[in-house]
Nucleic acid binder design. Sequence first.
RNA 1: GCACGAGUUCCAGAGCGGUCAAAUGGGAUGGACUCAAGAUCCAUUGGCUUAGUGCCUUCGCAGGUUCGAAUCCUGCCUCGUGCACCA
Length: 814
Amino acid sequence: MVGFARIEKKWQKRWRDGKVFSSRINTKKKKFYNLEMLPYPSGTGLHTGHARNYSIGDAIARYKRMRGFNVIYPMGWDSFGLPSENEAIKRGVHPTTSIKQNITTFKKQMTAMGLSYDWDREVSTHNPEYYHWNQWLFLKLLENNLAYRKKTSGNWCPGCHTTLANEDVKEGLCWRCDSEVIQKDIEQWFFRITKFSNSLLKGLDKINWSNHLKSLQKNWIGKSEGIEINFKTESGKKIPVFTTRPDTLFGCTYVVLAPEHPLIKNLIAGTKFESKVNNFLNKLSKQNELERMSKDKEGLFIGKYATNPINGQKVPIFIANFVLMGYGTGAIMSVPAHDSRDYDFAKKYKIPIKNVIRNKNTQKNKSYSGEGTLVNSGKYSGLISGKARVKIETELVRKGLAKKKINYKIRDWNISRQRYWGTPIPIIYCDSCGMVPVPERDLPIKLPRVVDYNAPAKSPLDTNSSFVNVKCPSCNCRAKRETDTMTTFVDSSWYYFRYCDPKNVRAIFDKNKIGYWMPVDQYIGGTEHAVGHLLYSRFITKFLKKLGYVTFDEPFLSLLNQGMVNMGGSKMSKSKGNVIDPLDMVNKYGADTLRTYLLFIASPSTSFEWSDKDIKGIHKFLNKILDLPKLKLGFRKKEYIESLTQTKISVCTDQFDKLELNKVLIELMDFYSKIEKNPSKIALNALIKMVYPFAPHISEEVWEKLGNRTMLAKSSWPEPDKSKVNKKAEQSEDAIRKTVSDIKQILRITGRKAKQIYIYVIPPELKNYLSSSDELSSELNANVQVFASNDVNKIDPENKSKKAKPGKPGIYIQ
RNA sequence: GCACGAGUUCCAGAGCGGUCAAAUGGGAUGGACUCAAGAUCCAUUGGCUUAGUGCCUUCGCAGGUUCGAAUCCUGCCUCGUGCACCA
């Protein structure tokens, strides 16, 4: 163990001194952009999840370098944001101070883990040189009408004192602090991500992400194609409703409006329903998000009727809590026979249920929402629903009663945060000119150092008057700055571009540099960013393409979602007190052991249960690797070892390419145990090279001890030589190993001692690959003779027991 | 409810048509070494057995395809993850 620490320090120094991992554009080499998600450097240092994430990434980076790629493997810091701000407040220091300390800790720990980052490309999002370009991006979005400000009810987290994006709200709760999110009317800035809905959806088809993740994004984007049908009130007002099932239109028995629907006031004005409806609406408005989301459907008839355009039938108009103003038109046509929600509602309020789709799977007391044959549908009766859908749609559209419509669930991205520690939004409000964007030449708008958290203010920045009060850039009179800051998800939506050109002061990046390095070939991170960061990044990339800054529109070609590390059946977390500090493990067993353990225990994408015991097994294995130079080279079984080596190289390469890193390790352990008694130089070299991406320090050490002058970090992956693969040699060796162990067992159990042992093999060529008789004799402590024949019967036909089969030796013990 | 994923021997986890009672690692049991512990090494780890390589039962359950299935097909069950009144 002590030996590991010394070796690790030694190689970390050599790598650093030799600048081995710095990356430069080299158009003669194929690039490989390897990236882990931007971490927030918390005060508690690396946790096991980080350690796993980076062990995976580093193994891939080292592997790809050996495969001859020009690898870019950078690291940086998501240093702005609420957690850093809260931590700083708690510690009573300025965030700049605490974040600097945290970054230092993180870097130190990463180095201790032996991660091969190119530190020359490091970026911190809280540096003005970085957020300058956040502001620039903002202005570009504004210029292109993709950023706008709007007063609207937004998700307000009372715990974090700020608004949140839809993506930050999980089941009505804040994703960070679990406070219940309330709706509050505030002026906020939005990015028009909805403009890219379709492109975000379509782009998923061309990237190599897991189905799971793609389905999460698809679900979030929520595309649905249908039509908007106009129902008319008695007074002639149009009520457009959105439906994906116009084929069920004849089954519509009522219409429901969302409580916020603008038409309601107009409809009930002066009627006897007015006060009743208002009371109901008041009651609903008092409900919070969670209550509103509960499954109990509540509604009220408002005393008016609407006309179904397909058959002229009058149907009652209701208002109800389950209809959402934010989706579609905020009004629905209800078909209780064929929609479960409409069915529940109709049952509760005793509204007629009219069956218009017939299908043998229909159940009593339940709605049927599948396809079938139309009934009770006038001239459309008898058609199957798919066809009817098209016909009804066409007719309504032709008559001007409906129009085709595609709806998306995704909403625009709220980027305003009423917090201090973030990028200032480059906008100035002037009494005479209105809203004025800060000119590009004035960027960056630097975040002031001082704010007063105790003074009452909309945002902390409001308390710094020298920040707030400015001259209007266009008329030069007194004006005020925007005081909200941007969510850090803006920072992290483009950082991977900046790594390619991290020190550029004139532009966000140099197009040529991006042209070489981007897009990211392998992205690695947790699944928790499925609909947040990953969606925003895709959006920003698509925007940059639109501007002509880049030529591709998907930033992450391949994505690996690593699973979680659990402890006692649940996710490790400080509140549960079940945390393993990866650095403790590094101190105890060495970085190589920790890394290899994290990669061996499960395939990167699956979650696993941490076990102290398992890590010891890995430590043992690595100690054996460290002892490789002590092994005496063997000269027997040459063909077998040679063939085995080639096979292992090709299997490991395949598995590595599939990122099944645990399987590579399994193969390597197997490889070791098969060659340890009879290693050849080639086998040893191949083994050590393939262990390197997992346990780079001890591999380098062994490599050096074996007499190599160049570092493994600069050497190449063994290429499999198919011509040397000899399946027969391998199979024979496997068979003979098994036979020998059978013989040993027989002797042990029967307590006999053998003098003479005959081994029979079929076909005779097998004999060529077997261990020699001498070798077997000494192993079995008896005189061993091997016979070979092509014919089962020729091998002592009298004795049934000698049942040699092709590839399976028979034995005879005397 | 919808979507995605998974069910293998004590545990984790390979195998994905024949050489599979099933890799690898843990654990357990026995043994070697040691005054002892630890470390290390060896053996065993589904059952039977007249133990000369045999037989039986196993890879969620039930069927099917095949000379042959843990591996392919169909149906079912269970578990995990995510979204969830999106019309």
